[in-house]
Design a protein around this nucleic acid. Sequence first.
DNA 1: GGCCAGGCACAGC
DNA 2: GCTGTGCATGGC
Length: 220
Amino acid sequence: MGLIEIYQTLQRAYPFPAGWAHGSWPMSRKFHPPGLEVVAGAILTQNVNWNNVEKALERMIQEGLVDVETISRCSRTRLEAAIRSSGFFRQKAQRLKTIARFIADYPGDFYRQVQREQLLTIKGIGPETADSILLYACGQPHFVIDAYTRRIFERYGALARTAGYDDIQDTFESQLPVEISLYQRFHALIVEHAKRTCKKVPLCGECVLREDCVWAADHF
DNA sequence: GGCCAGGCACAGC
DNA sequence: GCTGTGCATGGC
């Protein structure tokens, strides 16, 4: 199975990935602007289960921490308390404040103009966080490589298991049409598939990718 | 009670 | 350059 075929198979299996309406990032739309919720979620989800992140986002909304001025100016302890459930709350609070300040001071429209290299200069923003922001908040075609995607790649890719982020990303981007909605949906589908298989719901023989599933070793 | 979850920065080689 | 380690909570 090539990448496109995997995409099509997942698309047929999960027409509406839970929480990812039309393949877009899960959002309450209670941040201002809505894209800021993607930025916050991308930071809060670093090395942590999304369940923990949802609670943190809800508390940020309750606290009114939904715009860059408030986030960058509130006390660090207040922000830390709000996002405690997302783990690593001290460094994540600092990272949120840093990116909020960056957005507030951005000369121009951050959500339309920010470049990947600019994001990567910000402490706390690595390649995956940057690409999540660019793809889902800014609508720029950067394929997001996360832990789930790596497993897919390791099974199908020709590169060594030690391939770096950029190598894996190049492989996906060179095999797929450069299309924002495709990138968005594909990543959503990979996450959806990961959440549905094996660990919580042992589908095994029912897995839509059958023996090609990245979790095949667990299935069969 | 141990292990894992949609990373990242930084120190030490 | 590459590898190991700290960061911290919640669910199973």
